[in-house]
Design a protein around this nucleic acid. Structure first.
Lengths: 177, 177
DNA sequence: AATTTATGTCAACATAGCTGACATATTCGA
DNA sequence: TCGAATATGTCAGCTATGTTGACATAAATT
């Protein structure tokens, strides 16, 4: 038994009872998600530290490798950041030879983004430990369990922000290409 | 040459084939986690924006409410940040009356952290939409599916960093009373 | 009494977001 | 054809949140 017994709240109305699963709130899953995601990104973070890049670079390299030829606008939409924010990391990735730009074949204002071999290797190196972690977390789950995990994660995503993860259902403004 | 010109790939060896589930890497779950977590924290973010706090405050308020009376050292260990980083947000939360400090009953060097009523309300308000999102993502899953989700998330967490989420198995150095 | 521990604090710095303003090339519409 | 809209780039500065390193203080430990 730990805490909270002997301390003396002064006048400030202090609460010493833990916020538990009263109120019908699922604190267990909330915290599991927090810790799971934190450790999930710690793997690539360790690699990135050695190469001088950060998480922002990771995301860019990842999505460019997943959808070569995507436009800057599409990438901004996926990442939900501003172009000024993207510009900083994208420039570094281009200058270091991880990503290349090609003027759009039809609309030459566009800069379509492609990975170089180097960029592909980086993306794979970053994804590998994450995939291992996922495989480990999945082991012991049957087909139904794996399906449940996917359904759960999909259900956590805002319907509007369905990005590259499942890109059927690409509502109205499909003015890309 | 202010901008990178009419770009042409020429010699730079560009890849135009998507990085797919070749290589045995589970990109689908990697991306589902990315989008799920991003939308998961967008709910509290929206609330925090209106109250002048950020994600860092959210985490502090959350864990202090989950374990009233925890020490600064314990909180640092859970959050895995430096004390200087914590100090900034903790000071604001104390000054605004969301969290109170009480000298430890046995070791008076400690500052044990407790939520005020105000702090409890904030923590609940932040947790509520997240819990709703989780409930929505879980609906349609049976008992087995929910268990699979928990097992999966637990399996994603580093064994060493088991924090408040499941605190059985609180290995050796249990000098935290 | 000396040391260690728990915490606080100052200063400087890095990353990665943001807004606002403006430039340039290209496409599109009147 | 010309002017407006679009896709992108860029400059400047701000904020939030993390980092290191150095040092201060009070309380516990030896």
């Amino acid at each position: 038994m730990s805490r909270a017994g002997a301390i003396k709240p002064e006048s400030d109305h202090i609460l010493d009872r833990p916020m538990g699963d009263t109120d019908g709130i699922d604190f267990e899953i909330i915290e599991l998600l927090f810790f799971a995601y934190r450790d999930f990104i710690s793997d690539p973070d360790a690699i990135l530290d050695t190469s001088g890049f950060g998480r922002a670079h990771h995301r860019v390299v990842h999505f460019v490798n997943r959808e070569p030829g995507l436009t800057v606008a599409a990438l901004l939409d996926t990442l939900k950041i501003t172009k000024q924010s993207l510009a900083r990391v994208l420039k570094q990735l281009i200058d270091s030879g991880y990503i290349a730009q090609v003027a759009g074949p039809e609309d030459r204002r566009q800069r379509r983004l492609f990975p170089t071999e180097r960029g592909r290797e980086l993306a794979l190196a970053l994804a590998r430990p994450q995939s291992c972690r996922i495989a480990h977390a999945m082991e012991g789950l049957g087909e139904g369990g794996r399906a449940a995990v996917k359904a759960f994660l999909s259900g956590m995503i805002n319907p509007a922000s369905r990005g590259a993860a499942d890109d059927q259902d690409d509502m109205m403004e499909g003015h890309e290409q």
